[in-house]
Write a protein that binds this DNA or RNA. Structure first.
Length: 859
RNA sequence: GCGGACGUGGCGGAACCGGUAGACGCACGAGACUUAAAAUCUUGCGGCCGAAAGGCCGUGCGGGUUCGAGUCCCGCCGUCCGCACCA
């Protein structure tokens, strides 16, 4: 019943949104009080890198987090929902080189821009807790914890082979090398020997692995990825005695194996090219030197590894089999053995390892099967070019014959262990986290190098070690190394001339504890306050991209444990609930010349279902390409500012939450945004129509049921982060309200339903909700209103309609009272005309009644 | 190669513990209002047969379990993701 005399003005987002943002800020309703005694809820989205402008991925991420924050607030929780900036990193230095701006200036300008953009989204953030990791007030505490970790033995400095990114001129951690390339630069990574600082993440390998089981609100996928990354295996370190000692090395080679059961199938030993014994042997052996050099050359390029043949070099050395001193095995240097894993040496069992088999076949070493699959005749079991790596019965293995592989493993382990030849060893794939970066724009490592005292920690009282402000980027490399004034300092221990560590910390260190800092970012002297951090952590709901499944999420788990060890927190796990959202993707467009065209320049038509695209300027045809992740290179990006300017933040948020399940990619389409914009206006019309309703109330009960059903469903789905379903429930309620207004809803019932609709949209479209709240004449702010309780009595129907199947096919419906028992349902079903016609006087062979679900007759 | 996830209309997707497949939205068609367009409203929309009532087919493919399978089991095919010489 819309009032036709005075046409309703359209909802004006441009006017309403800043107005409500100001109202929220003034009421300070999103500022969180640590002393508030209500149950806490900490919701956090991964903080952004201040690259310049926010992108649609940010909009999606923060829209989701904001729904949770606003919903939990309405549910009576003391919600912490902070925002900050992951502000150190290479792009600032690249900008400095390209545009001659100071990295700090560049970063803070970006922060200002992006803060404004986030604020225009209407996010319910506590801006009073904002932090930037490049602020000395932040990294001071990171330096403090570095020193604490050092004292606890959780930081070490050692020479190691590291991944060197030749484009970014810095070292990368293993986690930061993707397919042999730097995660940022995409450059092929080289191996270099450097002295570096390491965080001893491997000290926690076992705990990081087993604790994954307790992270029940993490995606299985992420837990599995971390599990594989940590890569635990149980095996044996076995010493093979050399028939003759090697000068400068010793008289035995230790290998690591997870298959000691197959020891009687051994045909050779293989050692890594950079194994110490290989180095000893290479002295004076130019052939071996050449082979080692060749291995190292191939070893740096991932592509080569994929195709590289198994190559070996017979050293001429012989070792004795640990279970039979009369049995000698040749020792090869092989290109497939990694020095970094295990002991850098393996024994080869060709029959039961494909790689060993390839190698043995190439060098004519033969094979002896020692594990026979169940059901296979041992006498006819022969291995030619496919190794058998499964379980079975031991054969050709002397005292092991007849045992299972597991029994044989134990028997060998016990025997060799008893003889002092082998020890059981749990091996991890995970390696220590190298945190040294040869870059300027990062947290300085608080160490001073003194020729007489070695590396000396900077005294806590002298923290922070601040980055020098006046730096030049006119030369490649790290400006800190060239800054003599900054570098040269007296040794804190002996007072002699010394120099600062010029490496800075990996920026992943910065993001490994920011969630803890948010709990009390104002603390000047300490990183955290124990009682505060212990009350807020773990984060109840963390939301971010899947790309951090290993990197950031593993580092943060380590760092939280290290903080626990050093007393800065009492918790072990940083994130109790994790949600990984999908990407924002978009169609790609190309003009006739094959150049990428940005969506803003494309006009789409769809006459008769045939989609066509034209360039808005030239009117020339544009071809529609595949849907891909938004990227600058393909120009398929949509600027959030443009969307907010033309449609408003609520429309952008609503569209982001509609349709696609949040963990999947969402396809950004112009039609979709327009659909969202239409719904914004529709809600506005409905709420106003409800205020003007004047029906006799005939539709009231139906409407109230619909409203409370939506209320219950939306609540349940927000809790499970199924925002696309929330959207569907809200549409259903809007349809019901429309229907009821056309029918005869009373004003009271219409306004109640409109009020519920307003509260349901409030977490997603908060500005529109405030405007509707005011139109409905409700007090205060919708953002501060408690969540309405669903009336359970309205959720159940008195009568239910069940489908009736005959032989599994639906043939009729039967309507029965809600609490009808199986007998009554059966009787009602058999009385149906449609059923009687089929039965034709005969009784059904079987009747299945599932109360509240279905009836199935077998005839 | 190893590990994992997924496969439903023109599209995004829904379907809880095995119980009415396609909710909700987008796109599209027809109609109303309008001089016209936009907006809005009504209506249709998996395929085939039919005027309709209704019937048959249908959740990647082939089998199986079950009164009943998108859902469970076995075997294929395809797509995506992660790891990748890890001993």
């Amino acid at each position: 019943m819309t009032d036709a005399t005075a046409p309703l003005e359209r909802y004006n987002a441009k006017d309403a949104e800043p107005r409500w943002q100001a109202a929220w800020a003034q009421a300070k309703i999103f500022e969180t009080d640590n002393a508030d005694q209500r149950p806490k809820y900490y919701v956090l989205e991964m903080f952004p890198y201040p690259s310049g402008r926010i992108h649609m991925g940010h909009v999606r991420n923060y829209a989701m987090g904001d729904v949770v924050a606003r919903y939990k607030r309405a549910r009576g929780f003391n919600v912490l929902h902070p925002m900050g900036w992951d502000a150190f990193g290479l792009p600032a230095e690249n900008a400095a080189m390209e545009r001659k701006v100071n990295p700090r200036t560049w970063t803070y300008e970006n922060i200002a821009t992006m803060r404004g953009q986030l604020q225009s989204m209407g996010l319910s953030l506590d801006w009073s807790r904002e932090i930037a990791t490049c602020d000395p007030a932040y990294y001071k505490h990171q330096q403090r914890m570095f020193l604490d970790f050092l004292e606890k033995g959780l930081v070490t400095r050692r020479t190691a082979k590291v991944n060197w990114d030749p484009v970014d001129h810095t070292v990368l951690a293993n986690e930061q090398v993707i397919d042999g390339r730097g995660w940022r630069s995409g450059a092929l990574v080289e191996q270099r020997e450097l002295t570096q600082w390491f965080f001893k993440i491997t000290d926690f390998a076992e705990d990081l692995l087993t604790a994954l089981d307790g992270l029940e609100r993490w995606p299985d996928k992420v837990r599995l990825m971390q599990k594989n990354w940590i890569g635990r295996s149980e095996g044996l370190e076995v010493r093979f005695g050399l028939t003759e000692p090697v000068a400068g090395y010793g008289d035995g080679i230790t290998v690591y194996t997870t298959r000691p059961d197959t020891l009687f199938g051994a045909k050779f030993l293989a050692i890594a090219a950079d194994h110490p014994i290989a180095a000893s042997l290479a002295e004076g052996n130019t052939e071996l030197q050449a082979f080692i050099a060749e291995c190292q050359r191939i070893g740096t390029a991932q592509a080569a590894i994929d195709t590289a043949e198994k190559l070996g070099f017979d050293t001429g050395l012989r070792v004795r089999h640990p279970l039979d001193p009369s049995w000698d095995l040749p020792v090869y240097v092989a290109n497939f053995v990694l020095m970094e894993y295990g002991t850098g040496a393996v024994f080869g069992c060709p029959a039961h390892d494909q790689r060993d088999l390839d190698f043995a076949n190439k060098y004519g070493l033969g094979n002896t099967p020692v594990v026979c699959p169940e059901g296979q005749d041992p006498d006819s079991f022969v291995i030619t070019d496919t190794a058998y790596d499964g379980d079975g019965r031991m054969i050709n293995s002397r005292f092991l014959d007849g045992m299972s592989t597991d029994e044989a493993f134990e028997a060998v382990a016990n025997r060799l262990d008893g003889e002092g030849v082998a020890t059981r060893k749990v091996q991890f794939r995970l390696r220590d986290w190298g945190v040294s970066r040869q870059r300027y724009w990062g947290c300085p490592i608080p160490i001073i190098h003194c020729d007489s005292c070695g590396p000396v920690p900077v005294p806590v009282a002298d923290l922070p070690v601040k980055l020098p402000e006046d730096v030049s980027f006119d030369q490649p490399g790290n400006p800190l190394e060239r800054d003599a004034a900054w570098r040269q300092v007296p040794c804190p221990q002996c007072g002699g001339a010394a120099r600062r560590e010029t490496d800075t910390m990996d920026t992943f260190v910065d993001s490994s504890w920011y969630f803890a800092r948010f709990t009390a970012p104002w603390l000047a002297d300490e990183p955290t306050d124990r009682s505060t951090v212990d009350r807020w952590l773990p984060v109840d709901q963390y939301i971010g991209g899947i790309e951090h499944a290993i990197l950031h999420l593993l580092y943060a788990r380590f760092f939280t444990r290290a903080m626990r060890e050093t007393g800065w927190s009492g918790v072990s796990e940083p994130f109790a609930g994790l949600f990984t959202q999908g990407m924002v993707v978009h169609e790609t467009y190309k003009d006739e010349a094959g150049a990428w065209v940005q969506p803003a320049d494309v006009r789409l038509t769809a006459e008769g279902g045939q989609r066509q695209a034209f360039h808005v300027k030239t009117q020339g045809p544009v071809s529609i390409g595949p849907i891909e992740k938004m990227s600058k290179s393909k120009k398929n990006v949509v600027d959030p500012d443009d969307i907010i300017a033309s449609y408003g933040a609520d429309t952008a948020r609503w569209f982001m939450l509609s349709d696609s399940p949040p963990e999947r990619d969402v396809i950004w389409t112009e039609e979709g945004v327009q659909g969202a914009a239409r719904f914004v206006q529709r809600v506005w019309r409905l709420v106003n129509a409800a205020c003007a309703a004047s029906g006799d109330g005939a539709a009231d009960l139906t409407l109230r049921k619909a409203a409370h059903r939506a209320l219950a469903s939306v609540g349940e789905d927000v809790e499970r982060l199924r925002f696309n379903r929330c959207v569907a429930h809200i549409y259903t309620l809007a349809n019901a309200l429309d229907e009821a207004l056309r029918g005869a809803a009373s004003q009271a019932a219409a306004k109640e339903a409109a009020g519920i609709l307003t509260q349901l949209i409030a977490p997603m479209m908060p500005h529109l909700a405030e405007e509707c709240w005011t139109a409905l004449g409700r007090d205060g702010l919708a953002a501060a209103a408690p969540w309405p309780e669903a009336d359970v009595a309205l959720l159940v129907e008195d009568e239910i309609t069940l489908p009736v199947q005959i032989n599994g096919k639906k043939r009729a419906d039967v309507t029965v009272p809600r609490d009808a028992d199986a007998k009554a349902v059966e009787a009602a079903t058999l009385a149906l005309d449609a059923v009687q016609k089929v039965l034709d006087g005969k009784p059904p062979r079987k009747v299945i009644v599932v109360p509240g679900r279905i009836v199935n007759l077998v005839v």
